[in-house]
């Protein structure tokens, strides 16, 4: 392997696989042309080759000139990324503060010897949660950066017209931020339910010991395969929407099917056994054992409330979809 081969291979290392062979061939051809031109030097004339390569430039820089800047999360989706990070971080911080307040008041750790260790432990946990949430968001956006077709965004910029500001939004246009937010929250939900279901629970400390009690019952986990199936379908559907960018009768019907399935699952979950388990057995040996009944009752409302919100949101969405479907039929008649 001569010096030019080595140089070309080094440039190739920094090039995308698809264009690598072609660009390598072109650089080699140019280098040999240049070498030939210079005093009829040959490949064996090492000093001339070294001078030539030096002039041609550092391999990485040469490769960069072909591919342009590369992003983990590029400028086109960065504003949405920033928005989602802000929302998620604010929500986590809010939930953290609330949880801290509740835990501290139950255990009386606002003052006294427990105060400092409780404070440190709690915030370390919250910080860890925030870091992993941030990591998940970055991964989702990095994937989106690579799967979203670039041309769609460029077209949108070209089409922009100040008159649009005064117009009603096009009901057939897919909102990118909505689709991305749905994907993101579905991913976060799936990760939590499947990998870290224990983080949904009560965290408290007393007598210098820290206890964490998961509150989800076994009954909840029997529904997990269905939640996963709907979650994955939801993500796939939104990725498809991001590619298509326009609502069609087909995607509206798909969405109705998805939402109705979610509603059906929610109803089944509400009718089944309790999704929260804070029975005396679980709380035994903790300061909360005495209040097990009350706690179970209070926490028992939470899943009902969450699922009721899901029901309302899904219901409204289905109603909108059905309305749009019939409206389209009417308009096209």
């Amino acid at each position: 392997m001569n010096l030019i081969d080595k140089y070309v291979a080094e440039v190739g290392k920094h090039l995308p696989r698809k264009q690598r062979a072609d660009i390598e061939k072109e650089i080699r051809s140019t280098l040999e042309d240049m070498l030939e031109e210079r005093n009829q030097a040959s490949l064996k004339d090492e000093a001339a080759v070294v001078a030539l390569l030096k002039e041609y430039g550092e391999p990485r820089r040469v490769a960069e000139s072909y591919i342009g800047p590369r992003y983990l999360i590029g400028p086109r989706i960065f504003p949405t990324f920033e928005l989602i990070v802000k929302i998620v971080m604010a929500a986590l911080l809010g939930a953290g503060l609330l949880g801290y307040g509740v835990s501290a008041s139950i255990t009386g750790s606002f003052a006294g010897p427990d105060f400092l260790s409780f404070l440190t432990e709690f915030w370390t946990g919250l910080l860890g949660g925030m870091f992993s949430a941030f990591g998940t968001i970055v991964i989702v956006f990095a994937i989106l950066e690579r799967v979203l077709p670039a041309s769609e965004f460029e077209k949108e910029e070209e089409k922009w017209d100040p008159a649009d500001l005064a117009k009603e939004p096009d009901p057939d246009e897919v909102k990118i931020s909505d689709a991305i937010a749905t994907i993101l929250f579905t991913v976060i939900g799936l990760v939590i339910f499947n990998l870290y279901p224990n983080v949904i629970g009560l965290f408290f400390g007393a007598d210098g010991e820290w206890t964490f009690i998961p509150i989800l019952s076994d009954a909840f986990f029997t529904y997990l395969p269905w939640i996963n199936l709907l979650g994955v379908l939801q993500i796939a559907f939104n990725l498809y929407q991001l590619r298509e960018r326009v609502w069609t009768t087909f995607t509206r019907l798909c969405n109705i099917v998805l939402e109705v399935s979610s509603i059906a699952l929610v109803i089944i979950m509400l009718k089944g056994p309790s999704l929260i388990d804070l029975g005396a057995g679980k709380l035994a040996g903790t300061p909360l054992a005495d209040v097990s009944d009350v706690l179970t009752k209070v926490m028992g409302f939470v899943p009902g409330l969450v699922l009721a919100i899901v029901l309302i949101v899904s219901g409204v969405e289905v109603a909108q979809m059905v309305y749009r479907l019939f409206n389209i039929r009417y308009e096209t008649k």
């Binding site: 660009i23 820089r61 040469v62």
Partner: peptide
């Protein structure tokens, strides 16, 4: 510069 010309051609 070659490093400008070739990418431009592509």
């Amino acid at each position: 510069d070659q490093s400008t010309l070739y990418p431009l051609l592509r």
